[in-house]
């Protein structure tokens, strides 16, 4: 464990708790892409199947359990409890356009052709594109609530910090996992224009609005 990965994990935890809190407090999931949340749920479930079989540390097990629980709770709030506030007209990104190619790629490019490893690889690839429906929805509505932009900033920062963690681990531990690194770079690149808007607007107290 290193500081970059720890801060990255905490930023990730902050992001998902922030989103859950926003939906619960405002009793509304307006501006939130349910499709992205479904894909994140899929990411955690397929990645953490080893939750009970492969004990790494208390921290690792606890965080995996929290991520899965918060993801399921968020999906429940969006599609059941506050379903009336779900903006399905703007959440129109076709998930199958992401899940099918990612599933195929996981079969072709992986470290080990076993069920668990292919599911882990699927999860890594899916996570890199899972935010697309959310970013697409913001581009359609032309704006995002400030709390949603904080969620996105924390979520985008987590994988950016993981990239720093991988550089650190390469130089100090001789460890690198090319699949995670390439997917992590793609994931972080997808946030770049959002990061620019966040820094230039939200940090100056303005609302996040895309140029019409």
């Amino acid at each position: 464990m290193n500081i970059f990965r720890l801060v990255g994990d905490l930023s990730h935890l902050l992001a998902i708790l922030l989103l859950l809190w926003k939906i619960w407090k405002t009793r509304s999931c307006a501006g939130v892409s349910g499709k992205s949340q479904i894909m994140f749920g899929l990411v955690y479930i397929t990645r953490y199947l080893d939750l009970f079989t492969n004990f790494i540390s208390i921290y690792n097990t606890t965080m995996k359990a929290i991520f899965i629980a918060v993801a399921i709770a968020t999906i429940y709030l969006i599609y059941f409890k506050f379903k009336a506030t779900y903006d399905s007209n703007h959440d129109t990104f076709r998930m199958e356009f992401l899940i099918v190619p990612v599933g195929g790629l996981a079969f072709l490019v992986n470290h080990d052709f076993t069920a668990l490893e292919i599911l882990w690889t699927f999860s890594i690839y899916l996570e890199s594109v899972a935010i697309l429906p959310q970013l697409f929805m913001i581009s359609k509505t032309g704006e995002a609530e400030t709390i949603t932009s904080h969620y996105l900033f924390a979520l985008g920062s987590y994988r950016a910090l993981y990239i720093v963690n991988w550089v650190y681990r390469y130089y100090f531990e001789g460890f690198f996992d090319l699949i995670a690194i390439v997917a992590g770079c793609v994931q972080t690149i997808l946030y770049c224009d959002f990061f620019y808007l966040y820094v230039t607007k939200v940090m100056h107290g303005k609302k996040l609005s895309l140029p019409a």
């Binding site: 990965r5 994990d9 990730h12 080893d50 492969n54 790494i56 690792n60 965080m63 995996k64 991520f67 470290h111 080990d112 490893e117 882990w120 993981y162 963690n165 390469y170 531990e173 001789g174 460890f175 690198f176 996992d177 995670a180």
Partner: peptide, 10 residues
């Protein structure tokens, strides 16, 4: 370099 199969990262 090591490609550890039991993924220790979240």
């Amino acid at each position: 370099t090591l490609q550890d199969m039991d993924h220790d990262e979240l």
